[in-house]
């Protein structure tokens, strides 16, 4: 099970998401971005596999979520399921591989400009907690 909540931020939106494992927390974070975009869709369900890499976990979180922002705003998809298959350490840092199911987007209610690097955090102490700021 994975969850998220919005936290107070002066100008934009700060999100905290969590899960038992890194994959759950990153999945919850992506779900937050998708739900806060307010997309609705219809039509056939398609699937895509997304892979991102970064030097550290915070960078991986930002790069992963910016993939979600790009898919929603440029490819105009409505995400119906987000499965983060694997997050692992590699020689040059970390990688994340996820499977996304989506339909065509009919509309969205909010433009999310980007996931920012400011305040991006991944905390590992028992459960995994991630925090990030969305520029809206």
């Amino acid at each position: 099970m994975s969850e998220y909540r919005t936290l107070d931020h002066a100008a934009d939106l700060m999100i905290e998401a969590w899960g038992a494992h890194l994959e759950d927390a990153f999945g919850a974070a992506a779900k937050a971005v998708a739900e806060l975009s307010g997309t609705q869709g219809n039509g056939a369900v398609n699937q895509v596999v997304v892979s991102v890499r970064s030097a550290d976990l915070e960078g991986l979180l930002v790069e992963w979520l910016n993939e979600i922002v790009y898919l929603i705003s440029a490819e105009e998809v409505h995400l119906v399921s987000i499965w983060v298959n694997c997050i692992q350490r590699e020689d040059q840092g970390w990688s994340c591989r996820a499977t996304l199911q989506f339909t065509k987007q009919l509309f969205r209610t909010r433009d999310i400009k980007a996931v920012t690097w400011h305040s991006a955090r991944v905390e590992i102490s028992g459960k995994i907690v991630v925090r990030f700021v969305l520029d809206v």
């Binding site: 960078g59 790069e63 910016n66 922002v69 790009y70 705003s73 440029a74 433009d111 400009k113 980007a114 690097w117 520029d135």
Partner: peptide, 17 residues
């Protein structure tokens, strides 16, 4: 500049990091 500008900033923050 709408999504066009947003993506340019996203791209170049990563490049500069």
């Amino acid at each position: 500049s709408r999504g066009f500008g947003h993506q340019i900033c996203t791209d170049y923050v990563s490049i500069m990091l």
